[in-house]
Nucleic acid binder design. Structure first.
Lengths: 254, 254
DNA sequence: CGTTTGGTTGATGTATGTCAATATTAGTGG
DNA sequence: CCACTAATATTGACATACATCAACCAAACG
């Protein structure tokens, strides 16, 4: 997988600044590696938090807990994602970031990153890009939550995970299976439906031979069918970007 | 209303760069003023679009239309918002931007803005901030769509509009009424429910003396009750930022 | 004035939630 | 390796928030 693939949809002239900014940030974060178990809170909601993170391996999620016990996983982070970029600009994080599995992260103090940001527009570009990319995912998810049925949301999410894992090089572009550490209750809190209903949808997909989830592993047995279930929620452009709906024709490795 | 209020939640040390970046962008956009009627498409989905906009007056919204006719208003833009910042980095806009009323905008070609972005980290800060702010709103909306009932979503949205209009200085901070140009069908497409159900929720609020919508104007008659309906969807921090849930104790004008 | 657009309301249907019970698996200490 | 416990997954019976369908009204408008 070429590096450029990680930054889909870019204007070509920005590829160089993006990759240089990325390299600069990676270099700055060196020697800051940390490991956390699953179920830990990396960023606590309502607190001041001065670090910006890069997820090296494992899964994490931004989550908001409501006073009455309801919970929403707003966004899921996969390897390669920068997160908590907003630490640079806002004092307080309203949402928590929790690990969904054992994770390895690197991080940097916001003041140090901000110095780099002001001194190198390439670092700034990489940061802005990251936020834009998160925004793009949120757009898709708002559409899914606002318009999608439970089946459509599940299909969209599982294909999105697969596409992102492939882009980051964690799995091959044509992989039919991947590790997925979220419990059904956690999936429910991301999908905006109940855990019981998640279970029913997964059973239905399983019984129709479309896909199955077992032991923290997603196995897609009928990619076309799964893509068809997610397709109504995709815009035409997403539909044509093959790797995001499952028909990668790019090689898995560069 | 002091300028700084427009940039809530910031780290104090970034106020100066933010305001300077803002001023620089405003200056660059001078003499680019355009007026559009309601119902026009400013940015067409799936097309290349080279401009970054600033909304001077009126309402607009980012929207995604699905092939089967479903439609989702992803985000609503109010006066003072920058939008289509991503024009700088991505070639193609997957979502459209439509006017919801007569609007006045200013705009700038992305190459010109990018030059300023690379030459002034203050401009970069203002751009990154805008995207972070949009992301913050999307977080809240994902929580609303994922966890909220129809009543909670309506209450949250109407209070959010009020709070944002107050922050931008369009209405007074303690205003009980504001112009709201969206039709019930458009509200439905933002709320993720049907127009018929929007109507029922509004009727229920009206009959309970909480608020009413007539002739494109929202009138809040029982702010506490409306806030109580939205409160379950707010995190503790938002609840404490008074102007966002209706209890502004800041003066309306600076 | 007919036509269109937006709003309102009732009758009925359904996707999903709720409740509750039972498997199944994972973890823990003896 | 077993006994115990707590998560997690699974399933059925039943409830409900919201959707759908279909009418009708009111205002805007050319």
């Amino acid at each position: 997988m070429p590096d450029s693939a990680r930054f889909a949809l870019h204007r070509p002239e920005f590829l160089t600044p993006l990759l240089r900014g990325e390299a600069a940030i990676v270099a700055l974060m060196k020697d800051s590696r940390l490991t956390f178990e699953g179920g830990k809170t990396l960023v606590e909601s309502g607190t001041e938090h001065p670090f910006v993170y890069r997820l090296i391996s494992g899964w994490a999620g931004r989550t908001r807990q409501l006073a009455d016990g309801r919970n929403q996983f707003i966004l899921i982070f996969l390897p390669g994602d920068l997160f908590a970029v907003k630490s640079m600009f806002v004092r307080r994080h309203t949402d928590a970031v929790q690990t969904l599995s054992k994770v390895v992260v690197e991080r940097i103090h916001y003041q140090e990153l901000y110095r780099a940001y002001t001194e190198s527009h390439e670092v700034a570009v990489r940061c802005t890009w990251q936020v834009l990319e998160e925004e793009r995912r949120l757009h898709s998810w708002v559409v899914g939550l606002g318009q999608g049925t439970a089946e459509e949301r599940v299909a969209l999410l599982l294909l999105d995970f697969r596409g992102r894992l492939a882009l980051s090089g964690t799995i091959a572009a044509d992989a039919q299976t991947y590790q997925m550490p979220m419990t059904q209750a956690q999936l429910a809190d991301h999908l905006g439906i109940t855990a019981v209903h998640v279970n029913r949808v997964l059973r239905s997909f399983r019984e129709r031979g479309i896909m199955s989830v077992r032991d923290g592993k997603v196995t897609i047995t009928d990619l076309d069918a799964l893509s068809r279930h997610a397709a109504p929620l995709l815009d035409t452009y997403e539909k044509s970007t093959a790797q995001y709906v499952g028909h990668a024709d790019a090689p898995a490795e560069s």
